[in-house]
Amino acid sequence: MSTEIKILKQVLSKYSKPMTLTYPSTVAPERRYSQIPEGLRGIPERDNDKCIGCRACYFVCSGRATSIYDKDAKRTVEIFLFRCTFCAHCQEACPEEAIKMTNKFEIAVPNREDPAARVITELDLLKCKNCGNPYVTRKLVDRTYERLMEKIDTIVKETVSNDYKKLDGYCPDCRRAYGVDFDTHTKKYVWLEGV
């Protein structure tokens, strides 16, 4: 009986204030949500301008939520949220810091095809100058060149840069098939080893 009286006292001391939040309602915005922590991994968001379609997120994705497919001269990079575990590996792996985990979490969709269930980026593919097949995104070529030039040794820089520009715009198949015609510098790797 004494414990019950203790409980009753405790209950009645805070009797006037229920601790319930007002969630779906917006009447009291400060009491709407529970605590949203600083590093909450919510729905991932991709910056369409920054994404270069490099597949780094595809390779690290543990739940196979990320898929990349080329169709009609477009490369689609998508995260299917139904398979996503919100682990933020793609955020870590992204070389361009295009993927950011937001702290949004309210998502409920009525069917699998709903656009809200996917984080989609569509990128235009570059067509091969020779055969006309789409093969890679423009941004990926440019960013690879930039990063290459940042890190490469000054001795080979000019040669590599010239070769890169000669090969630019051709798909890997065409490069292999018509390699001789490009007249690229064959010795650059030998020089690199010597440095």
Partner: peptide, 19 residues
């Protein structure tokens, strides 16, 4: 109704139930 999240916050579950 699908409520993705790993795990979804209680608010997200309530949102899904309301839908």
């Amino acid at each position: 109704v699908y409520v993705p999240g790993c795990a979804p916050k209680p608010e997200a579950i309530i949102n899904g139930v309301v839908q």
